[in-house]
Simulated scan of single mutants.
Amino acid sequence: MGIKTAYTGYKAYDYLTPGEDYKYFELTPKDRIPEYLVPLTPEQEERSLKLAREKIVISMHEHPIYNPVDLEEYRPYRHAGRQSFAYEALAESYLDCIFDNMMNGSCVITSHNGWKWTDIVHDLGMRLCDIAHQDFVIHCKRVDDIHRAHKEGKLAWVACIEGAMPIENEVDRIDIMYGLGIRLLGLTYSESNAVGSGLKEVRDAGLTIFGREVVKRMNKVGMLIDVSHSSPLTAIDAAELSEVPICMSHAGAKALWNSKRLATDESIKAIAAGGGVIGIEAAPHTTITNNHRVHDIDAIMEHFEYVANMVGIDHVCFGPDTNFGDHAGLHRIFAKFLSTGYTKNQEDDYPRVDHVKGMENPREASKNIIRWLVAHGYSDDDIGKVAGGNILRVLGKVWK
């Protein structure tokens, strides 16, 4: 058991009978790979745990579900429309709040290609029904919910949609999403849509006229704008147009590794100039550097320190983008939907890993971020900022 004292043992869909009420899939255990913890001295161990108890810890981008053991069953699992939230594993984490991005790009209930409006509403409704049958996770709709979760030993759950394709050309769907509890929306997911250019495209046209309407409507309803998978110009346009801060919830610095998936200095600076935050990514083979070609926590933290040094510690946080299962394998089988073929580094001489050491899942990542910062001499105030304080500041200006 971790520091989340309110967890009482509920598992996803405990109110139903597997195999009778829904199709059963064998899911990955929470300890698929033995947990790795950044080594600390006894004094550092004590300080790390104290910080985890006292500071509000937030992950700005995760997919906190158990995936099938057999990834050949992943598509049928998603087609069944019932993902399994990782209550038990998250109760063992340091997290007070988690931004859940719902895997809508692989939501193939009615379509082979994902991102359909009907499917994301199905996905969200199924998750909300499950959450309604337990009392550990709070559906987070306002900043006060995060403070409450921290105080009560619970977990605040933020519903997010990673790309705006499901709104099609209907700006009013932003209001509907907000009404259903969505509090963060990505403008694009790699490929272009009616809102703007995605990061995989050959030509970068930035935000469209319709996209400008979307940004303004998101400002009005109080929904956080995410440009993690948007092109550099789309990100900059959105940062400059928005009347409140925006975010890049999961990314890294292109200056450290020449990949379209990572952010240019110009887009990072534009987001910071508007008061926003950049969350550092940890999905396999993303935040590599020339100094750390084997993807591990040290590579990720080189991206963190680069961004912090460039725009200041007040504008960086963490969005590890992890799940419970074979993440590297998931990328391989869903390359089309995740656009990895168009966004990876053009160099092909870096070692492939089957998991990212120190950042395998949301539980491990939440612990090791604090442990690494403690081990490298960061102050309590700075750790509090990047662990969650910077996100809270932004949410206080955006959420209504």
Score class of each variant (00 low, 15 high):
A6H: 05
G9Q: 03
D14K: 07
Y15Q: 10
Y15A: 07
G19H: 04
K23A: 09
K23V: 12
D31K: 10
R32V: 02
T41C: 03
M60F: 15
E73W: 05
Y77N: 03
R78A: 14
S84T: 11
Y87V: 10
L90W: 06
D100R: 05
N101I: 04
G105T: 11
T110M: 02
H112E: 14
K116T: 15
I120E: 08
H122W: 12
R127S: 10
L128M: 13
H133S: 05
R142M: 10
H147S: 08
H150Q: 14
E152D: 11
G153Q: 04
A156E: 05
M165P: 02
M165Q: 13
M165R: 14
E168H: 03
N169Y: 14
I176S: 07
L180T: 04
T188D: 01
S197H: 05
L199R: 07
E201M: 13
A205F: 14
G206L: 03
T208L: 08
V214N: 00
L224I: 12
H229Q: 13
P232Q: 09
T234G: 09
A239P: 00
A239G: 10
S242N: 02
E243H: 10
S249W: 03
H250L: 04
K254F: 08
N258D: 15
K260A: 02
K260M: 09
A272V: 14
G274K: 07
G275N: 01
G276S: 03
V277N: 07
I278L: 08
A282C: 15
H295E: 09
V307Y: 02
V307W: 00
D314E: 15
H315S: 11
F318H: 10
G325Y: 04
G325Q: 00
A328K: 12
L330Q: 13
H331A: 04
A335W: 12
T340L: 14
Q346N: 12
D349Y: 05
R352A: 14
V356C: 03
M359D: 01
P362M: 02
N368L: 07
V374Q: 02
V374D: 00
Y378W: 15
D381G: 04
D382N: 13
I383N: 05
I391D: 00
L392A: 06
R393T: 12
K397M: 06
K400A: 01
